[in-house]
């Protein structure tokens, strides 16, 4: 377990892992955002957000 933790730590902190891992996550995230936007998820968010959310304020 300790050995795997050290290995994970080494991967995260070497020059490649330091930037490659977050960069890969960012790319996947941007693809997700575009895909979600295209299939209309932003509309769902907007629809919920422009009306008073009765659950959020403790009524509904």
């Amino acid at each position: 377990m300790n050995c795997s933790n050290n290995l994970f730590s080494k991967i995260l902190n070497n020059n490649i892992g330091r930037y490659l891992i977050p960069a890969a996550v960012c790319i996947i995230a941007i693809v997700f955002i575009i895909f979600g936007f295209i299939r209309g998820e932003a509309g769902i968010v907007l629809k919920k957000a422009v009306n008073i959310c009765l659950e959020c304020i403790g009524i509904g």
Binding site: P22, C26, A29, I30, F32, I33, G36, G40, A42, I44
Partner: peptide
């Protein structure tokens, strides 16, 4: 809202946003 909506069972838009902010 997106996870609970009838049409979508995964929130790519929001998960992507959270991943982007988190990764930065």
């Amino acid at each position: 809202s997106v996870l609970g909506s009838r049409g979508f069972k995964f929130a790519f838009y929001i998960v992507g946003f959270l991943m982007l902010v988190g990764a930065i």
